[in-house]
Write a protein that binds this DNA or RNA. Structure first.
Lengths: 340, 340
DNA sequence: ATGAAAGCGCTAACAA
DNA sequence: TTGTTAGCGCTTTCAT
């Protein structure tokens, strides 16, 4: 057998090829009799329309390109899974590309995506230069950045409220009575890393507290080295805010296993994301929740609205998250301000 | 601008449309002069060949379908990342489908894959019935099962040596002097889960040791419940072999955080996979390594060889792994047999 | 409601 | 080496 074409179905059903097409084309109409004959013949032959051929004519491939960098941070595989499920339910599918965060690499990958005539692009955990987003705009391919923003650009993006999240963490740690506070940030080359840091340090500064910041690069080993460095100083911090959970686990491992310190008694640790692992017994990490489902839904709504209406303007959506208190921090003493 | 066609490039370069095609078709030839003119015009216009159109003619989409179920077990995102990278390097791309392990669901997903004329299919962490693999064979679509086998079937698969792995774990625990040994298995509906269990229990039985087995279903919560159940018995185990690392972390969390027990002093725990997390300080899990890179390479070699030569027979490849000793178990006393 | 015919953008066979 | 031509399998006018 191999491939069955609409023509073969047409012959078997005793109708024209275009009749077969109409039966399988969502918007088209055919008489009940025709529909029945065609469906029967198609079922017998195991016919299904060829999406490639359909895509060529309609100009819509129903493929969404997903560019992703770090799959070792649990947040992203989970996002991928949710995105894939939600898009599958709407009849779209995901063509995955892995790229490092190097702009040239991302650019190459985007070109390859365009070769497949994808209907839209989602980037997760990777940044895009404005030239690159311009290239997509020229090619009329809508794009949504997931968990990343672009500073000057007019690209769509979905993030959590990172500035506000940083602020909430700072206020929480202050309420816990911490005075010596450090921040191991997300990669400061990413908007996400920068915003969290900015919201955090700005709030501490306003409270008259100096903050030591080191760039953790979203990397376990870098975060570990930063931890050792911070704890080695004259006045080591008694609280560390880490730019995401993935690094926070490394920080906790280093503190406890390598340095023999207690979390939270010696050092409190706060993360960002609230990946499922943060709730596991081994960590029980206090963290800022990024509401994954809502972020995914917003991403898909935004992207598909632009796929269906190319004139829809780009939007930057921020989703609010809550601080989830667990046992990697102590209870706040100062409860005058519970608005973490 | 939007989409640039080969015809537009041809006009600008002052050559025929097929000349343009030849310049961009790997196997074809054109004079240096033509190549230069075409490349220049193409660059100016930002032209790239339309993969869909190419796929229609050649019958090769250069798309590989990947069906995956559990992205919460770190092993699979990592496999996805490696597969994607390796395939990208060879000019293939991955269309991802998430499916539950329900056969109907997998069947639907496979149909959708075929709609896109994928050149091959990789299933990771999902089983396939023999009717389903037959359907793929009828459609001439090669398929490789990653980390799953099919019992009677003649499908290609790449797994680790699961029977042998189970044996090695049993021998190791015996050498450590354990007498009261339990197994929280991987889902017994999967070949992988069954084989590990069989190799394990068979070896224990030969040593005259009874083994208690519970099905952990590859699920954290099920594994936790099994742990509570096992430890609640009259003679609780002093060692537990868990069917994969993902569940083993849950078992350790339960043992330590919920029950206040020490690992390995009260109970030794062994996992399977050796995901990166197993080496993290919080767990330091003794586990059977599944050599991910070698499994991925084998999967791609196998699949692409079948894509290029449809007559290539299916093969079931097993990759050997080593037992990685960490601190979730004690050192073996009996060292007469170090061949774990 | 249906069939005939055009053509999506490309590759491949065929001539020249 | 090059241009011309014929499709790949389908959707979509356009007649009927």
């Amino acid at each position: 057998m191999g491939v069955v074409t609409s023509l073969q179905v047409a012959e078997r059903a005793g109708v024209s090829q275009s009749a077969v097409s109409r039966v399988f084309t969502p918007g088209a109409s055919a008489s009940a009799k025709t529909v029945e004959k065609v469906k029967k013949a198609a079922a017998e032959l195991g016919y299904r329309p060829n999406m490639m051929a359909r895509a060529m004519i309609t100009g819509k491939s129903r493929i969404i390109g997903l560019v992703v960098a770090y799959l070792d941070n649990q947040f992203y595989p989970l996002a991928l899974e949710r995105l894939s499920n939600a898009l599958q339910a709407k009849g779209y599918h995901i063509l995955v590309f892995t790229a490092s965060n190097d702009n040239d690499h991302v650019a190459r990958v985007v070109e390859e995506l365009m070769d497949y005539q994808v209907d839209g692009i989602i980037t997760a955990s990777v940044g895009m230069s404005s030239e690159l987003t311009q290239r997509c705009e020229d090619a009329r391919i809508p794009i949504v950045m997931f968990n990343r923003g672009q500073d000057g650009g007019n690209v769509s993006s979905v993030t959590s409220a990172n500035l506000d999240g940083g602020r909430k963490v700072a206020e929480f740690l202050l309420a816990c009575g911490h005075q010596s506070i450090a921040h191991i940030s997300g990669w400061l080359g990413s908007s996400t890393g920068r915003d969290r840091k900015l919201g955090f340090t700005r709030t501490l500064t306003q409270a008259g507290i100096a903050s030591r910041v080191m760039d953790g690069m979203y990397d376990r080993e870098t975060a570990r080295a930063a931890t050792l460095d911070l704890m080695d100083r004259r006045t080591p911090p008694d609280a560390i805010f880490v730019g995401n959970d993935h690094m926070a686990f490394s920080v906790m491992d280093c503190l406890r296993t390598e340095m023999g310190l207690s979390v939270p008694n010696d050092v409190a640790v706060v993360g960002y994301d609230d990946v499922p692992m943060a709730a596991w017994g081994a960590y029980n990490l206090t963290t800022m929740r990024q509401p994954l489902n809502r972020m995914v839904d917003a991403t898909i709504d935004l992207l598909l609205s632009q796929v269906e209406d190319k004139t829809a303007p780009p939007r930057a959506i921020e989703i609010d998250g809550a601080l989830i208190q667990r046992s990697s921090t102590r209870k706040p003493k100062d409860t005058t301000n519970e608005g973490f």
